[in-house]
């Protein structure tokens, strides 16, 4: 039982507590129907932000096309669940969406990921727009600009919570694997990584594909919870929304993205009455973060159970201190 060490057990307890706390809040009616929408938005945003952070923060590839992959997942799930309005249909839809998004990301990624920095950003932006225009022109399958409505309501926040956990486990395990370390090496210095024998295109593409697939999962949950989707929901603006969460939390910090999604989701509720001012504040915050603290809330640091546990018995000297 190597998997069930102290750290993982700590995380497991932490997750269960978070789940039960939310469950209690919902059962006591503190999170009512209105706040449940916020809760769902936060959960969906966590999946989106973590996926995008894998692409931008960990592999260092600047993608502005996240909304496009989300659209693929949303439409797949919507079409599947309209045909078979059961949980099986929902899972099949989400899985199919993730698969298609992954394949599209693979096809797009192999040529475009050779591009650097801002060129890649524009290329992925173009891909997302092409996906959106393709959906617009698919006739009765996607119902054009009017979008699909009456998508069966099959998602509960519990289900979304489980999907968030699955996404987190996949992404975190990828980052901690040797492929993940290779990906981070590419972020740090692509040329150096290449000269160390890392197949940069391969690892960039893997990160890109995983990110796209998670975006599709989030899109599926979005479609099934909000039951109305239009191509206009998945524009460039949506990609920017996700980008703001990632930047706010810190490029290269999974826990940062999670916390940023939660914090921004809650702030959103309080700023709701201010309407347009909210967007102005958002954009000002984005600029200010980039100027004063470009690393975001967390930078590349993570909130870790192991460090919390270590702090309780700080008497044990760390390696650095020992060498001194």
């Amino acid at each position: 039982m190597k998997q069930l060490n102290k750290t993982n057990l700590g995380w497991l307890i932490f997750i269960l507590v978070a789940f039960l706390a939310t469950q209690l809040l919902v059962s006591f009616g503190i999170i009512d129907a209105f706040y449940e929408i916020t809760l769902m938005t936060i959960l969906i945003n966590i999946i989106l932000a973590v996926g995008l952070n894998l692409i931008i923060g960990f592999s260092g590839q600047f993608s502005l096309g996240h909304a496009g992959f989300m659209a693929i997942g949303a439409y797949c799930t919507a079409i599947m669940t309209i045909k078979t309005p059961t949980l099986v249909g929902l899972f099949a839809g989400i899985l199919l969406g993730a698969l298609i998004a992954g394949v599209v990301a693979l096809l797009v990624g192999i040529p475009t990921l050779r591009l650097k920095g801002d060129y890649l950003a524009i290329a992925t932006l173009g891909v997302a727009e092409i996906i959106r225009i393709a959906i617009l022109n698919m006739g009765s399958l996607t119902n054009g600009a009017a979008g699909l409505s009456d998508i069966p309501y099959l998602t509960t926040w519990q289900l979304a919570f489980i999907f968030v956990m699955i996404t987190l486990i996949i992404v975190v395990n990828y980052i901690k694997s040797s492929a993940g370390r290779a990906t981070i090496a590419i972020r740090e210095d692509e040329i150096a990584a290449e000269s160390m024998g890392i197949n940069t295109t391969k690892y960039k593409t893997i990160a890109f594909v995983i990110g796209a697939a998670t975006a599709a999962v989030a899109g599926g949950l979005h479609a099934s919870y909000f039951s109305v989707i239009r191509p206009a929901d998945f524009t460039f603006m949506k990609s920017i929304d996700i980008l703001i969460i990632v930047v706010f939390g810190g490029l290269g910090s999974v826990t940062g993205s999670v916390i940023a999604a939660i914090v921004l989701g809650i702030i959103n509720v309080f700023l709701q009455p201010f309407g347009q001012l909210r967007m102005i504040l958002y954009s000002l915050a984005l600029i200010a973060i980039m100027i004063f603290k470009p690393s975001g809330l967390f930078g590349t640091k993570e909130f870790m159970i192991s460090t919390v546990m270590k702090k309780q018995k700080t008497k044990t000297p760390t390696k650095k201190e020992e060498t001194k």
Binding site: I280, I287, M290, P294
Partner: peptide, 19 residues
């Protein structure tokens, strides 16, 4: 700063002007 940071700022400015 890095080019990505500058690019995100530019996106922020564009967002700001729109809103």
């Amino acid at each position: 700063a890095t080019r990505v940071a500058a690019l995100i700022t530019a996106i922020g400015v564009s967002f700001l002007l729109q809103n």
